[in-house]
């Protein structure tokens, strides 16, 4: 596994949002949305980022694509540091990296037909003449399970699942290498969600895609991913291969998160040990000292308040940031 080629390397990525206040709109503090996280993504794999709302998983995705300019850190895409590239030349790099959003209702311009939506990326990057673009559009629409008769319609004429197919077609028409899926199936009904997940898997094989899958849904993540990173309050808590993480979670937060998923198997429900965490996620503009999870952690001890746990490889390919594993 580890010999596979690394496509994307994220090193010490930070994204702080200033909090402005007062009459003069001075910066009074920072929300550390992403606070020093590192990971790499390997070719053709699905790497997932999970966590609760406000943990910084979406911001990470957007910082990689520089839709939010990172505060600090490096992002290496095929060896090239994306942070050093000027804004205008970064626009050309965007064709290799695409983003698919959660909300299929607001992510498509309501005034453009499907055909125009799909042609826009090609024409923007001058990858095709209008005529060629139209041919590619027809091909792409069929690949995502829609038909050519849909081309002249507007987004509002489609259901949520179909719109998400359009979003996928629009992202993939540029033949990107890396696709970041930000809660891409979260807004969909169960019966539609599985259709889209199947489609994503099938397209990944066909186009040799690398996915970064951002989600709060641990069941979906388990199904789709090769490796999973668990985030909490802007930091990476644990990162491992999917099976290792689900079968043998190390971090107390991961354990609690997994136990909180409502079971769908009556037998499993009987003998499942549930950890119910106390309290809420702390305010990210005022995080606790030391380990960000310590206020809710059933295992917290004195050391957790004093120092931030190191992010270490506790087992082979299994990283964790917790004092319990760093004696």
């Amino acid at each position: 596994m580890s010999e596979e080629q690394v496509v994307l390397e994220v090193k010490h990525l930070k994204k702080y949002f200033p909090i402005k206040g007062g009459i003069l709109k001075r910066t009074q503090g920072h929300v550390k949305a992403v606070d020093d996280i590192s990971f790499d993504v390997r070719e053709n794999e699905t790497f997932s980022l999970v966590g609760e709302s406000g943990c910084g998983k979406s911001t990470t995705g957007r910082a990689i694509l520089r839709l939010h300019e990172p505060t600090d850190g490096d992002v290496l895409f095929n060896g090239e540091n994306l942070i050093d590239v000027s804004k205008s030349s970064f626009r050309h790099l965007r064709k290799d990296m695409q983003l698919i959003f959660q909300d299929p209702y607001s992510s498509l311009n309501p005034r453009m037909t499907v055909k125009k939506l799909l042609m826009e990326p090609l024409l923007t990057h001058k990858l095709a003449t209008p005529k060629e673009a139209e041919e590619k559009t027809v091909e792409m629409v069929e690949k995502v399970g829609l038909s050519t008769e849909h081309l002249d319609r507007y987004p509002h004429e489609f259901s949520g699942g179909q719109r998400q197919r359009i979003s996928i077609a629009r992202a993939l028409i540029l033949r990107p290498k890396l696709v970041i899926l930000d809660e891409a199936v979260s807004a969909l009904d169960v019966s539609i969600q599985s259709q889209i997940l199947n489609l994503l898997k099938q397209l990944q094989e066909e186009f040799q895609l690398t996915y970064i899958f951002i989600s709060h849904d641990l069941n979906v993540v388990k199904h789709l991913s090769d490796r999973v990173g668990v985030m909490y309050l802007g930091q990476m808590m644990e990162l491992a291969e999917t099976e290792a993480l689900y079968d043998n979670p190390l971090h107390p937060y991961t354990k609690a998160l997994l136990s909180a998923i409502p079971s769908i198997n009556p037998k499993e429900k009987e003998n499942k040990e549930r950890i119910i965490l106390q309290g809420d996620v702390p305010d990210p503009s005022d995080p606790p000292s030391g380990c960000p999870f310590r206020l809710r952690c059933p295992m917290a001890h004195d050391r957790c308040a004093e120092e931030i746990p190191r992010y270490i490889e506790a087992e082979r390919d299994h990283w964790v940031a917790c004092h319990l594993y760093d004696e």
Binding site: S159, G161, Q162, D189, S191, I192, S194, Q195, L197, N198, K201, N219, V220, K222, H223, T242, E243, I264, N265
Partner: peptide
């Protein structure tokens, strides 16, 4: 249920609501 199984293809109900 097939979500939890990490199978390759998920069972899905065809069509739209």
């Amino acid at each position: 249920q097939s979500l939890g199984e990490r199978s390759n293809e998920l069972y899905s109900i065809p069509g739209n609501v």
